[in-house]
């Protein structure tokens, strides 16, 4: 058999085979439906993965002690110390703090003779200034962030006095990390937020 004859037979055979193929209905809709289903599954999987990553990142972030909400954010006032927040100790609290938000006090940015800072010492004493009067006292921290403070004698020169003492006396629990210090009332409401003074 010559090559040409075989080639001709091949063409004929392929044509016959192709002609025998029954009509495949709905090819377009089957292809697009399959792809769209796969895309939906991909989006769902991606969404679930993103949610899982967000949860893991949130937990890791809070375990790192950086989970405190941004100062002044709307949710901040309603935040309660979570179970995963780091335990505040004398060591983490030690240092000077400047007020960022005090519940019911709006004159934080007023000009004052002194910087209205609070300083906690690792020996259980605190000092500070309300802007024009020196403050001092003692404090204690429990194992789970329970907080109590005593306020010592102070002068009462009038200015836009920053009410540190009222905050310290109202606070029942504190949470702090390297950058932020939060005071919470007995009902879990955040009453004040401070940032570490540089």
């Amino acid at each position: 058999m010559s090559k040409t004859e075989l080639e001709e037979d091949l063409r004929t055979t392929f044509e016959r085979a192709a002609a025998s193929v029954p009509l495949a209905p709905d090819l377009a809709s089957r292809a697009t439906t399959g792809v769209r289903r796969a895309q939906r599954r991909t989006w769902l999987a991606a969404g679930a993965a993103a949610a899982a990553v967000a949860v893991v990142a949130g937990v890791a972030f809070s375990l790192n002690g950086s989970s405190a909400p941004v100062a002044g954010s709307p949710s901040a006032a309603a935040t309660t110390p979570a179970a995963t927040t780091p335990v505040t100790t004398m060591q983490t609290l030690a240092g000077s703090w400047r007020p960022v938000r005090l519940d019911g006090f709006t004159a934080l940015k007023a000009a004052r003779p002194d910087d209205p800072l609070l300083t906690f010492n690792s020996d259980g004493t605190w000092t500070g200034s309300d802007g024009c009067n020196g403050l001092q006292g003692t404090f204690t921290i429990g194992q789970r962030g329970e907080f109590s403070a005593r306020v010592g004698a102070q002068r009462l020169v009038g200015c836009d006095n920053v009410p540190h003492t009222a905050i310290l006396q109202a606070a029942k629990r504190i949470v702090s990390n390297q950058a932020t210090l939060q005071f919470f009332a007995g009902d879990g409401r955040e009453v004040a937020r401070y940032a570490r003074a540089r």
Binding site: F14, A18, A19, V21, L23, A24, L27
Partner: peptide, 14 residues
């Protein structure tokens, strides 16, 4: 697909 889809099935069969 409307124009060439069936050709693809035929190619697949061959």
């Amino acid at each position: 697909v409307s124009a060439r889809g069936q050709e693809l099935v035929r190619l697949g069969f061959t």
